[in-house]
């Protein structure tokens, strides 16, 4: 096919052949999205409705109520006054600098994405921990999900569902779910063999082993996974805003295109603040549930 010497020039595929492949695949996918796009969109309808409802709830509730609720959640999860006061100040500053509404939008989407990631990730992680075959199938998929630039898998999602909240959520979940899956799998695999053996020896069936031994003992690792997932979801906020997800990402995007440094900085800082809050709270909560492990030292 290639006319040049294959020693000096890479034996490349014919340009026209490549075009055929590209056209073929693109065409097929377009065809697919044209005929199934609507069905799939309808499938996601309940999710969309929930997203809209939850965002409205956060945006429309009085700010002091939201702060009160968040602070009480933080306090009951961590039992730390210092942390609670820190959260209070962070949210107050966010509101004071005029980013309240966007923060609420981001908060709502992060919350939903995290819940979806946990709800899907933990069962997948459990499956993976139960068979080496599963593990060897899923691990490369997770590798791809984590290394593939987000923009690349945004394309088919947008082609299929257009721009908006749902494709945003899908993109964020794809990007953020791997840590929960990986660490659930790892946590369960690392459970002390003798403890698990003891459970089996006393006649525990596989459900009793899972809920009575494996998950509780894997919990610290799973919590670390959830924490990572939240962080990654937050990191996706800016990219998700490119496909129409409202929130703190949009002003950042705007400031890139218009070179508004301060606007970008403020919104960036708000994202950082959210990240720190999520991180500290989930870690403190994780530690608190594992207290019995530590008292020994």
């Amino acid at each position: 096919m290639s006319k040049g010497n294959w020693l000096t020039e890479f034996p490349q595929m014919d340009r026209s052949d490549l075009l055929v492949i590209r056209k073929g695949l693109d065409g097929a996918y377009k065809e697919f999205s044209r005929s199934y796009g609507e069905i799939i969109e309808n499938l996601f309808e309940p999710l969309l409705r929930f997203l809209v409802w939850f965002e409205k709830l956060l945006v429309n509730s009085p700010w002091w109520l939201i702060i009160a609720v968040i602070c009480s959640i933080v306090y009951s999860a961590t039992r730390s006054v210092k942390l609670t006061v820190g959260v209070l100040i962070a949210f107050f500053l966010i509101g004071y600098f005029g980013m309240w509404e966007n923060t609420m939008r981001t908060l709502s989407i992060i919350f939903v994405c995290t819940m979806i990631s946990i709800a899907m990730g933990i069962p997948i992680g459990i499956m993976m921990s139960r068979s080496n075959r599963m593990q060897s199938i899923i691990t490369p998929m997770l590798d791809i999900m984590q290394t593939m630039p987000a923009f690349v898998y945004l394309i088919p999602v947008v082609m299929l569902l257009g721009i908006g909240k749902v494709p945003g959520v899908i993109a964020v979940v794809i990007y953020a779910i791997p840590p929960v899956i990986r660490l659930t799998n790892l946590g369960i695999r690392l459970v002390d063999k003798e403890v698990l053996e003891a459970a089996t020896a006393y006649g525990a069936n596989s459900t009793q082993r899972l809920f009575g031994v494996q998950l509780p003992l894997a919990l610290p690792t799973i919590m670390a996974g959830i924490n990572q997932t939240i962080m990654m979801a937050l990191a996706m906020v800016v990219i998700a805003s490119m496909i129409g997800v409202k929130g703190l990402g949009q002003p950042v995007l705007k400031s890139i295109t218009n070179q508004y440094f301060t606007l970008g900085l403020f919104n960036g800082l708000a994202i950082v603040a959210l990240a720190i809050v999520f991180d500290r709270v989930s870690q403190a909560y994780g530690k608190r549930t594992q207290k019995h492990m530590e008292r020994a030292q």
Partner: peptide, 9 residues
Amino acid sequence: FQRFGLMPH
């Protein structure tokens, strides 16, 4: 069990 096999939680 040799290493007790107790459930730490």
